[in-house]
Amino acid sequence: MTVDLPALEQTAAPRAAPARWSRLARPALGLLVPVMCALGWELVVYLGYSNGRLVPPPSKVFQTIVELARSGELSRHILATLWRVGAGFALGVVAGTVMGAISGYWDFAKRLLDPTVQALRAIPSLAWVPLFVLWLGIFETSKVALIAVGVFFPIYLGVMGAILSVDRKIVEVGRVFRLSGPAMIRRILLPAVLPAYVVALRVGLGLGWMFVVAAELIGASEGLGYLLLDGQQLGKPAQILAAIVIFAILGKLTDWLIEVAAAPLLRWQDAFGARGGQ
Rank of each mutant, 00 (worst) to 15 (best):
I185C: 10
L32D: 00
G204D: 00
D167I: 09
K60G: 06
A90E: 03
L39Q: 07
S59H: 06
G104P: 02
V94Y: 01
I188P: 00
R23A: 15
G251Q: 06
L201V: 00
K236L: 14
I65E: 06
I218G: 02
T2E: 14
A101D: 01
K252N: 09
F247Q: 04
L189Q: 02
A101M: 10
L31G: 01
A162L: 09
A248Y: 01
R275A: 14
I155Q: 05
L8P: 03
E222N: 14
L32N: 01
D4V: 11
L5C: 11
A17S: 15
G88S: 08
V159T: 13
A87K: 00
A214K: 02
L189N: 02
E172T: 07
I244G: 04
E216N: 08
P18G: 08
V166A: 07
L31R: 10
V173G: 01
G92V: 06
P237E: 02
L157Q: 07
A238N: 10
F152G: 00
Y49I: 10
H77V: 07
Q118I: 11
L266K: 03
L24V: 14
I249Y: 01
D255V: 03
W83Q: 12
L47P: 00
M160H: 12
Y46Q: 09
L190R: 08
L91K: 03
P34Y: 00
V94Q: 07
S22P: 03
A19F: 15
R26V: 08
K252D: 10
A183N: 11
L126E: 01
D255S: 02
I240C: 05
L32H: 00
F139V: 12
I258E: 08
D107G: 06
A248I: 14
G158W: 06
W209T: 03
T2Y: 02
Q233D: 13
L205F: 12
L234W: 13
Y226N: 08
V129E: 09
F139T: 13
M36T: 13
A19E: 12
G96E: 05
P57W: 02
Q278N: 10
I163L: 15
A263Y: 05
F152Y: 14
G137V: 07
Y156A: 01
G150R: 10
R53C: 01
T141H: 12
A38P: 05
F153P: 10
M99N: 06
K110H: 14
D167E: 13
P191S: 06
G174T: 05
T141R: 12
Y197N: 03
L91A: 02
G231E: 04
A16S: 14
F272Q: 12
W21F: 11
D114M: 13
V117D: 03
L146Q: 13
G52D: 00
R186K: 12
L8T: 05
A38C: 05
I185F: 05
V117F: 14
L201C: 06
A17Q: 15
A238T: 05
I170V: 15
S165H: 12
G235P: 10
L224I: 12
G30I: 11
A196C: 06
V151P: 01
I249V: 13
L194W: 11
M210E: 09
G231V: 10
P56C: 07
A263P: 04
L257E: 08
F211N: 14
L113F: 11
G225S: 01
G52L: 04
R121P: 03
W135L: 13
R15V: 15
P124G: 08
L228A: 01
V199F: 04
R267P: 04
P264V: 11
S165D: 06
